[in-house]
Design a protein around this nucleic acid. Structure first.
Length: 829
RNA sequence: GCCCCGGUAAACCAAUCGGCAGAGUUGACGGAUUCAAAAUCCGUGCAGUGUGGGUUCGAGUCCCACCCGGGGCACCA
C-alpha cells in the first residue's frame, strides 16, 4: 500500500473496524450496569424489551425491536438516570424439545447453544443491557419460583384441577389455552385443534376479570388503544341475568344466562349445547340413541367448520319440556350445535322473535315465534329477521308498555323476589389452562397420593427438577414424557409417607414470562421469586417494548399475575407495565418473511454488509416505531452514507485543531441550528418519534457540512460544538460511530456517558419571523416581523404589503384574521 | 356482520393548537471534481393529501358517507 492509498483508507469510513475496536473497549467499561444501591439518588428508570425465545440467531424483527428500546434506554442513561435495562431468555418450550428428539439430544443443549449465539449477537448489536442480570427461565434457579408461585396460587384456590373440554393439538400432542387457539388452529404449529375431555390444571384468571377490565382504564393513553381494545374484547364482559328453568324429570332447575331478560315472555323453546353433559342428562331415555348419534356428528366437525358463518343450525328434540318461570308455560328442550358448552351455562332460553340465531333455528324446525317487543320493524316470524334492538314490551304481563331498560330492571327484580333468578355478569374469558403434556417446562409441584389426594410439594423440597430425559424419551405420546420417568414419578407422600406419584404435566411457558420482569430486579435472590425491596424500587416497568402479537396472551397473563401478587401483599402496584410501545413488524415485499415464501432476510448478512450502526439506523428511520417496515423499500446504504458524513465532520474538526475557548462561541447561525436540533430531538425522543429525530440529525449534519465547506470553516468553535452535539445525539442510534466521533473530537470514552446536551434558550428565540399574508386563504405575500409583534401592528403591516394590495385590486375588505406572529388572512369580496 | 388503525411526490416518510403541503431519505436528472469511474460536494424537478359532501376566513388535520389496505372480534346467548 502506498502512502497515498493508506492516507485515503484512513479517511474512509470503515464500520467493521470501528465495531471491532469499540466492542473490545466497551467490555472493559461496563457502562450500563444498574445500581441497586438504595443510597443512589439518581432517578430510577426501568426499560424492558420483551425477552427473546432462543429459536436460533436474532432476526430482522429483533433488530428493529431492540434498536427502538435501546435508543430510549440510552437516552435515559444520557439524562443521568439509574437505568435498569435487562436481558434474559424465554427458554422453555416445544422447539427445543422437537430439536432434541431429532438430534437424540437434551433440549438444554439446543437451548443454551442458541442463547449463546443470541447473546453474542446482542453484544455485537450494541444493546445497552446490564448483563449481570441475565436470566434463563429453564434454569432451576428460575423455575423454582414458578413452582413456588404455583403453590401460592394453589393455597389461594387460584390454581385448581378440573375435568375440561379442552383444546388439543394433535401435532404437538398437548393441550392449549384458549388464547393459544387462533381461528381454530394451534398458535404455534397451525394444526387444526380438536376437543378432548381431560383433567387439567387451571389458573382462575376469571376471578380477576373485573379488575383486569377496570384497571385497563388507567392504562388509557399509556398503552396503545388497540391493545386495550383487544383485551376488552377478549374479556368480553356482558351484563344480564341468570334465570332458573325447571325441567321435567330433573330435581334441580337449569340455569341460563341472558342479556335480554326483558324478552323472557317470548321464550318459546329451550336449548342446551349438544356436546355438554347436560344434554345427555336431560334427554328422555328413549331418545338417547338419537342424541348420541347427533353428538357424534357434531363432534366430527372442527371448531372452524362449526363456527363457519352461514352454516345451517342443527339440533334434536330431547323429549322433555322446561317451564318458563314467569308464565309456567311448557316449552320444548332441544340440544343444538349453536349453543356452546363452555360459554355461560351451556344452556339458553330461546327467544326466536328477538334473537337471530334462535329465529334461524325455529324456522328450520318449525318452532313457534312470539313477538314481545314492538319495534316498528317487520314481523320476524314472516320476515325472518329478528328484532333485537329496543322497543316497547307486549305480550309480557307486568312488563307490557315498558321499554327495554325498564323492563330488564323490572323483570330482574321480579325474578330475584321469587328466587327464580338474579342480575348477573358473564365473561367470555375462561380460566387459563396451564398444564402441558410436554417435557421442556416447569414441573407442576403437586404429588398425587391415593389416600391424601393432591398434596403440594413441601417448600423446602423445591425446586422439583426435571429428570434427565433426552432423544426418544421425549417423543410425544399423548401423556407427558415425565410419566415414563418412573424413578422421578414415584415418591412417597409428604403427608402420609405412603407411595404416591408426582404430577407429570409441565406448566405453560406463559407462566414463566408472567413475572420475569420482577425477577430482573434481583435475579440472584434466593429467598423468594424476588426481593420485595428491590422490586419496590424498580418496578413497575416504566416502558415495555415489544410486538403486538402478545396483546392478549402475555400481557393479559402478566397483568393477572401482578394483581394476584398485589393481593398477596408481595408488590404494591397493580399493573406491571406503565407504558407500552408496540413496534411493527419487519416484512419483505409486502409480506411477512417466511420460509415458504423464500423472502427471508438474514440479519447477519445485513450486518456484515452495512454494519451494525447502519442497520440500527435503517430500522429507526424507516417509519414510526409502531408501523411495519417493508425491507424491500429500505436502503441501508443511505445510512452508511449518512454515518460517513457524520464521521468525516468529526475528522475535519479534529484536523482543524479547533477548540471552544470561553467567550468565543462561534458562528451564531450554526449554533441556532445546533440548539434547535437539541430541542427538537429531545422532544421527539420523549414522544418516541424516533424516525423524525433521525431526520433532524441529518439536517444538523447537512448544516455543519455547509458551515465547514462554505461557511466559517472546520476551525470555528460552533462547528466543534455541532460535531460534539451530533456525537451525543447519534449515540442513541449508532453507538459505534458516535463513540468513534467522540474520540476523534478528543474526548474520553464512552460517549454513552457524555450527558444529554441542553439547548440554550437564547439560541431558540429568533429576532424575526416570517408572517404569511393571505387574501381569501391564498398566500399573497410574506413579511418579516418581530416574534412578539402585536395583532394590531401585524394587521397594519399586512394590509400595507404589496402582494396584498395587488391581490385586493380595490375589493373591499370584509374581515381580517390575525394570528400573530405567523399569519394574517384578509377576507375580501 | 361489528369494532379499531391507516391512505400525503415514482418509493419510504414529515407537516405542535385547523394557519406557507415538504424536514429527512431513496430513485431520476443536471453540474463540480476525475484521464475515466467510484467516492465526495453542489443543484433540479416531481403531489394539492383515497373519493364525495359538510363546518370554517382558512381543512392533510374536525364532522358525515363511501372506496381501498391492514388488524381485532364473531353462532358469546
Amino acid at each position: 500500500m502506498t502512502a497515498a492509498e493508506s492516507a485515503e483508507a484512513a479517511q474512509r469510513y470503515d464500520p467493521r473496524a470501528i465495531q471491532e475496536k469499540w466492542q473490545r473497549r466497551w467490555e472493559k467499561l461496563d457502562t450500563f450496569r444498574a445500581s441497586d444501591d438504595p443510597a443512589d439518588t439518581r432517578e430510577r428508570a426501568y426499560l424492558l424489551d420483551m425477552f427473546p425465545y432462543p429459536s436460533g440467531d436474532l432476526h430482522m424483527g429483533h433488530a428493529e425491536a431492540y434498536a427502538i428500546g435501546d435508543a430510549i434506554a440510552r437516552y435515559w442513561f444520557q439524562l443521568g438516570r439509574n437505568v435498569l435495562h435487562p436481558i434474559g431468555w424465554d427458554a422453555f418450550g416445544l422447539p427445543a424439545e422437537n430439536a432434541a428428539i431429532r438430534n437424540n439430544a437434551h433440549p438444554a443443549d439446543w437451548t443454551y447453544a442458541n442463547i449463546e449465539t443470541q447473546a453474542e449477537s446482542f453484544r455485537r448489536y450494541a444493546v445497552s443491557f446490564d448483563w449481570s442480570r441475565r436470566l434463563q427461565t429453564c434454569d432451576p434457579e428460575y423455575y423454582h419460583w414458578n413452582q413456588w408461585l404455583f403453590l401460592r396460587f394453589y393455597e389461594r384456590e387460584l390454581a385448581y384441577r378440573k375435568d375440561g373440554y379442552v383444546n388439543w393439538c394433535p401435532k404437538d400432542q398437548t393441550v392449549l389455552a384458549n388464547e393459544q387457539v387462533i381461528d381454530g388452529r394451534c398458535e404455534r404449529c397451525g394444526t387444526v385443534v380438536v376437543r378432548r375431555t381431560l383433567t387439567q390444571w387451571y389458573f382462575r384468571i376469571t376471578s380477576y376479570a373485573d379488575q383486569l377490565l377496570a384497571d385497563a382504564e388507567a392504562l388509557e393513553r399509556k398503552w396503545p388503544e388497540r391493545v386495550l381494545l383487544m383485551q376488552r374484547n377478549w374479556i368480553g364482559r356482558s351484563e344480564g341475568a341468570e334465570v332458573h328453568f325447571a325441567v321435567e324429570g330433573r330435581d334441580e332447575p337449569v340455569t341460563v344466562f341472558t342479556t335480554r331478560p326483558d324478552t323472557l315472555y317470548g321464550a318459546t323453546f329451550f336449548v342446551v349445547a349438544a356436546d355438554s353433559p347436560l344434554a345427555e342428562e336431560l334427554c328422555e331415555p328413549s331418545r338417547l340413541e338419537e342424541l348420541r348419534a347427533y353428538v357424534a356428528e357434531v363432534r366430527k366437525l372442527t371448531d372452524i367448520e362449526r363456527q363457519a358463518t352461514g352454516r345451517d343450525k342443527t339440533g334434536v328434540f330431547l323429549g322433555v319440556h322446561a317451564v318458563n318461570p314467569v308464565n309456567d308455560e311448557l316449552i320444548p328442550v332441544w340440544a343444538a350445535d349453536y349453543v356452546l358448552p363452555d360459554y355461560g351455562t351451556g344452556a339458553i332460553m330461546a327467544v326466536p322473535a328477538h334473537d337471530q340465531r334462535d329465529l334461524d333455528f325455529a324456522r328450520a324446525y318449525g318452532l313457534p315465534v312470539r313477538g314481545v317487543l314492538e319495534t316498528g320493524q317487520p314481523d320476524p316470524a314472516t320476515g325472518g329477521i329478528a328484532t333485537a334492538g329496543d322497543g316497547q314490551l307486549i305480550n309480557s304481563g307486568p312488563l307490557n308498555g315498558l321499554g327495554k331498560a325498564e323492563a330488564i330492571a323490572r323483570i330482574t327484580a321480579i325474578l330475584a323476589e321469587k328466587g327464580l333468578g338474579h342480575a348477573a355478569v358473564n365473561y367470555r374469558l375462561r380460566d387459563w389452562l396451564v398444564s402441558r403434556q410436554r417435557f421442556w417446562g416447569t414441573p407442576i409441584p403437586i404429588i398425587h397420593c391415593p389416600s391424601c389426594g393432591e398434596v403440594p410439594v413441601p417448600e423446602e423440597e423445591l425446586p422439583v427438577v426435571l429428570p434427565d430425559l433426552r432423544g426418544q424419551d421425549l417423543v410425544p405420546k399423548g401423556v407427558s414424557p415425565l410419566a415414563a420417568a418412573t424413578d422421578w414419578v414415584n415418591v412417597s407422600c409428604p403427608k402420609c409417607g405412603g407411595p404416591a406419584k408426582r404430577d407429570t404435566d409441565t406448566m405453560d411457558t406463559f407462566v414463566d414470562s408472567s413475572w420475569y420482569f420482577l425477577r430482573y430486579c434481583s435475579p440472584h435472590y434466593a429467598e423468594g421469586p424476588f426481593d420485595p425491596d428491590n422490586v419496590r424500587r424498580w418496578a413497575p416497568v416504566d416502558l415495555y417494548v415489544g410486538g403486538v402479537e402478545h396483546a392478549i396472551l402475555h400481557l393479559l397473563y402478566s397483568r393477572f399475575f401482578v394483581k394476584v401478587l398485589h393481593d398477596m401483599g408481595l408488590v404494591d402496584f397493580r399493573e406491571p407495565f406503565t407504558r407500552l410501545l408496540n413496534q411493527g413488524q419487519v416484512i419483505n415485499g409486502g409480506k411477512a418473511m417466511s420460509k415458504s415464501l423464500g423472502n427471508g432476510v438474514d440479519l447477519g448478512r445485513q450486518l456484515a454488509a452495512h454494519g451494525v450502526d447502519a442497520i440500527r439506523l435503517t430500522m429507526i428511520s424507516a417509519s414510526p416505531p409502531e408501523d411495519d417496515i417493508d425491507w424491500a423499500d429500505m436502503r441501508p446504504e443511505a445510512m452508511v452514507k449518512f454515518l460517513a458524513r457524520a464521521w468525516r465532520i468529526a475528522g475535519d474538526v479534529a484536523a482543524a485543531g479547533s477548540s471552544r475557548p470561553d467567550g468565543e462561541p462561534g458562528d451564531v447561525a450554526l449554533r441556532r441550528v445546533t440548539h434547535h436540533t437539541i430541542d427538537d430531538v429531545t422532544r421527539l425522543v420523549e414522544a418516541h418519534r424516533l424516525n423524525v429525530a433521525v431526520a433532524r440529525l441529518m439536517e444538523l449534519v447537512n448544516a455543519t457540512r455547509r458551515a465547514i465547506d462554505s461557511g466559517p470553516g472546520a476551525g470555528d468553535p460552533a462547528v466543534r460544538e455541532a460535531a460534539e452535539v451530533l456525537a451525543v445525539l447519534l449515540s442513541l442510534f449508532a453507538p459505534y460511530t458516535a463513540d468513534e466521533c467522540w474520540e476523534l473530537l478528543g474526548h474520553q470514552p464512552s460517549v454513552a456517558r457524555a450527558g444529554w446536551p441542553v439547548a440554550d434558550p437564547a439560541l431558540l428565540v429568533t429576532d424575526s419571523v416570517t408572517a404569511v399574508v393571505q387574501v381569501n386563504g391564498k398566500v399573497r405575500d410574506r413579511v418579516e416581523v418581530p416574534p412578539d409583534i402585536s395583532e394590531d401592528d401585524l394587521r397594519e403591516v399586512a394590509l400595507a404589503a404589496a402582494g396584498v394590495i395587488r391581490a385586493l385590486g380595490g375589493q373591499s375588505i370584509r374581515k381580517v384574521i390575525v394570528r400573530a406572529p405567523k399569519l394574517v388572512n384578509v377576507v375580501a369580496g
